[in-house]
Simulated assay, not measured.
Amino acid sequence: MGASTNNNAGAGATRAWLDQAVRRIEADFNRSADTHLIHLPLPRYPGIDLYLKDESSHPTGSLKHRLARSLFLYALCNEWIGPDTTVIEASSGSTAVSEAYFARMLGLRFIAVVPASTAAPKLDAIRFHGGEIHAVDDPRTIYDAAHRLAGETGGHYLDQFTYAERATDWRGNNNIAESIFAQMAQERHPIPAWIVCGAGTGGTSATIGRFIRYQRHASRLCVADPEQSVFHRHFADRGTTLLHEGTGSCIEGIGRPRVEPSFVPSVIDHMIAVADGDSIGAMRALSRRLGRGVGGSTGTNLWACLKLVEAMAARGERGSIVTLLCDGGDRYACTYYRDDWLSARNIAWHAAEATARVALGIPISG
């Protein structure tokens, strides 16, 4: 009888901790205003409106803040995380930054398994939020390393690549798709012709694609993908699931060498493969247009948007396109914004910047 009482007491204490953990995360959400939707006029295309959903304004500075919050809530409500659990994640940086933020909020140890090539500012941000770094030389080994660390510490591997598509409520509940359509309601073309995003885990594209179908919107979903990624190949041929050649893309946060479990190609209408140089050129042009830096994956999104704009204009179509400003440029000051870094990697970006500047109405001489 005594053992049963002790067990019940322990279970009660854990449940009380879980209740408080969920409350803290929900309170953090209530304190954070929704991210802005920025209208970006296109002088050369007066019938087409372009919008940027600015995810850099989250408390941890990127789109991944939404994912990290969902992953923690999912793990908590499944009771995979308790008051003494070490939390592990495999990440190229931004997801780990956001997860470190939530782990510290809950008083939990957090270890990020990252490729050694991850930009230093991202590593600094993980440490700033109390996270620890476990770097691996081969990016393909991050999964196994995360599993191993979880076993060694008795911790929990959040596994964004598996759980991203199921941790977020795609039917609504303030997800990114619901927010986009609510913010577009008073615009000239309130139902976007296209929504454009990238794919790292596949969670964001799955959420947006499912929401579009659930709400029966006419919008189509386009996923912009680095040329060196497997996702666009898998979209074209479901038999392709792994890349064996190439050095991979330099665009952090999107594109993968293997098809991740959270990537759902059936809810995607179109994919555009984007060269790294085009992503960097579009990123540089947009940074000039906004007066502040954006990250490389935002450049990937923008380049795909400009391709869609050209196609719509050629067909005489009018409408709106919404894409994501994924994170700010400060995390890439030592990489994408350094000409010598790009030259050392033979990334040709000047022509793409000139093209994007014309489309955005930025004087080439400026």
Rank of each mutant, 00 (worst) to 15 (best):
G198V: 06
G198T: 05
A199S: 15
A199Q: 04
T201N: 06
G202K: 05
G202T: 01
G202Y: 01
G203C: 06
G203K: 03
T204Y: 02
S205T: 13
S205N: 05
S205A: 14
S205P: 01
S205R: 01
A206M: 05
T207D: 04
G209T: 09
R210H: 15
R210D: 03
F211K: 03
R213Y: 07
Y214L: 13
R216K: 15
H217S: 12
H217I: 06
S219V: 08
S219D: 11
L221S: 12
C222E: 05
V223S: 10
V223C: 12
D225K: 09
D225G: 09
E227I: 15
E227Y: 13
Q228H: 14
Q228R: 14
S229C: 10
V230M: 09
H232F: 08
H232V: 01
F235V: 10
A236T: 02
A236C: 10
D237K: 07
G239C: 11
G239Q: 13
T240W: 08
T240G: 00
T241S: 09
T241C: 14
T241L: 14
T241F: 10
L242A: 09
L243H: 08
H244T: 15
H244C: 11
H244I: 14
G246W: 06
G246L: 09
T247I: 11
G248P: 13
G248Q: 07
G248T: 05
S249P: 09
S249W: 08
C250Y: 00
C250K: 04
C250V: 15
I251E: 00
E252C: 03
E252S: 10
G253H: 09
G253W: 11
I254P: 08
I254T: 01
I254C: 07
I254N: 03
G255S: 04
R256A: 15
P257C: 02
P257S: 11
V259A: 02
V259R: 01
E260M: 13
P261E: 03
P261H: 02
F263S: 01
F263H: 02
P265A: 08
P265E: 04
S266W: 03
S266P: 00
I268P: 01
D269M: 03
D269Q: 08
H270A: 02
H270E: 14
